[in-house]
Amino acid sequence: MHALARLALLSALISPALAVLPASAQDIAAGERSWNKCRACHQIGEGAKNLVGPQLNGLIGRHSGSVEGYSYSAANKSSGITWDEAVFAEYIKDPKAKIPGTKMIFPGIKNDKEILDLTAFLKQYDKDGKKL
């Protein structure tokens, strides 16, 4: 069979299988369940306030140490981090390893899929706590 014909056949066989897969590997509902580990110290959504930790509205794209009214550690304020998905994933696995001296006392989330799901949940909220 000609290489182009094999590629067309392979594509015809794989395309229907891919159509049943979710568009994203992230599961927002699972991320919301994971959020339960965070809610003792953080809030998110409209009306979110700083608690033991800062509110997390608009986290992705935000500079570390920049939530108004929250008293950050010197380590967090001077870390120079801009939160993106990769940086957040590294941080949430082991906060004290990523930012030595952080006030955040959390053992971390080690499961990569859970981190992706939690990130998808957090990304739903803009800087004002409105769902996108």
Score class of each variant (00 low, 15 high):
residue 88 F to H: 02
residue 55 Q to D: 09
residue 79 S to V: 00
residue 103 K to M: 13
residue 68 E to C: 11
residue 18 L to P: 10
residue 37 K to Q: 15
residue 14 I to S: 14
residue 68 E to W: 13
residue 45 G to F: 02
residue 105 I to P: 09
residue 22 P to H: 08
residue 28 I to D: 05
residue 5 A to F: 13
residue 111 N to F: 08
residue 68 E to A: 15
residue 109 I to Q: 02
residue 23 A to V: 14
residue 78 S to A: 15
residue 83 W to M: 01
residue 59 L to F: 08
residue 47 G to D: 02
residue 87 V to F: 12
residue 132 L to I: 15
residue 13 L to A: 12
residue 31 G to A: 05
residue 62 R to N: 03
residue 13 L to Q: 09
residue 130 K to S: 07
residue 97 A to H: 15
residue 96 K to A: 10
residue 119 T to C: 02
residue 47 G to A: 00
residue 70 Y to R: 05
residue 54 P to S: 03
residue 95 P to A: 04
residue 11 S to W: 10
residue 106 F to E: 03
residue 106 F to C: 03
residue 68 E to L: 15
residue 87 V to D: 11
residue 49 K to I: 06
residue 91 Y to Q: 01
residue 79 S to P: 01
residue 10 L to R: 05
residue 117 D to T: 05
residue 9 L to R: 12
residue 91 Y to R: 00
residue 106 F to A: 01
residue 69 G to M: 04
residue 58 G to R: 02
residue 20 V to P: 08
residue 14 I to V: 15
residue 48 A to K: 00
residue 82 T to N: 10
residue 27 D to I: 01
residue 96 K to R: 13
residue 44 I to M: 08
residue 122 L to W: 02
residue 42 H to D: 04
residue 45 G to S: 02
residue 55 Q to N: 11
residue 132 L to N: 15
residue 81 I to V: 05
residue 12 A to I: 06
residue 11 S to F: 10
residue 112 D to C: 08
